[in-house]
């Protein structure tokens, strides 16, 4: 929900980043305030996922220009665990499987690490078990998933639900969902969307990266941004996604050229 008086959570200015010497992000500007839901759309290779990873501090990407303020802190000066502790959460497009580590062990370790860094109380295994089971209900997850190895043998939908479960536990200020809708059938999509909507509130914000309008039927964005070649080339309201769905990304180009023609 847009509220002009709410606080700025994220302020990205002229962000450039490269990997292996190739520039992927070429000057991104984005402001996210608390309470807002942003969608970033765009074709494959436009830099959407890279943007998400750069915000989360992935070591493969080097920021070459620009700056990012996250709640009055210099995000780029923090390493990835500090960002997580400060309240950035990235839901992975392809969550990692960790055979040999029970999901509940992993979830509790992450939860307690973040809690202690934030000066909150940690939970012992029994307390945590009650706590996590409550959160799992929201995502209609079977408690059996606690005893299984992290993401191992989980279906695509189960992995994504496990990501949102982690978001529910870590209570981030900014949730970044990287193609959380990919590989989900419609029922799983609805459950995941319900979870995200439940977690979204006036004090936090979400950035959803997606190819498709489909997700945005269930999680309604306040802003839709279109990325191309490492930049945000257009920003609009939720209706922009519908237009894109109807006309395709090419429409944007002809549309833009028309606009350019008019303003020239």
């Amino acid at each position: 929900m847009i509220n002009q008086n709410s606080q700025t959570i994220l302020n990205v200015k002229n962000l450039h980043a490269n990997t292996d010497g190739t520039e992927i992000l070429k000057g991104i500007n984005l402001t996210v305030k608390s309470g807002e839901i942003h969608a970033i759309m765009g074709l494959n290779g436009s830099g959407k996922s890279t943007f998400a990873k750069v915000l989360a501090g992935h070591p493969d990407y080097t920021v070459t220009q620009g700056n990012v303020q996250f709640e009055q802190q210099d995000l780029l000066a923090m390493n990835s665990e500090e960002r997580a502790q400060a309240g950035i959460f990235l839901a992975f497009q392809y969550p990692i499987e960790i055979p040999g580590v029970a999901n509940n062990q992993f979830l509790r370790l992450a939860y307690n690490t973040v809690q202690s860094k934030r000066g909150n109380e940690e939970l012992d295994p029994l307390e945590f078990d009650d706590f996590v089971r409550e959160k799992m209900k929201l995502l209609e997850m079977n408690p059996d998933f606690l005893d299984r190895s992290v993401n191992e043998g989980f279906s695509g939908g189960e992995k994504k639900r496990n990501e949102i479960l982690q978001m529910a536990l870590l209570e981030p200020k900014l949730g970044i969902l990287d193609e959380t809708d990919s590989g989900l059938d419609i029922d799983a999509l609805k459950i995941v969307a319900k979870g995200v909507n439940h977690l979204s509130n006036k004090d936090n914000a979400m950035i959803m990266i997606t190819h498709y309008q489909r997700l945005l039927d269930h999680i309604v964005p306040d802003y839709v941004h279109v990325m191309e070649s490492g930049r945000i080339i257009k920003t609009g309201g939720k209706e922009l996604a519908l237009e894109l769905e109807k006309h395709g990304y090419d429409w944007l180009h002809s549309h833009q050229q028309n606009n350019a023609g008019v303003s020239a």
Binding site: P59, A84, I96, T113
Partner: peptide, 16 residues
């Protein structure tokens, strides 16, 4: 490295 990043993005230190 992807696995390490995944865990760090959940707040765990490099060592952990």
């Amino acid at each position: 490295n992807e696995e390490i990043f995944y865990l760090k993005s959940r707040g765990l230190s490099e060592l952990a």
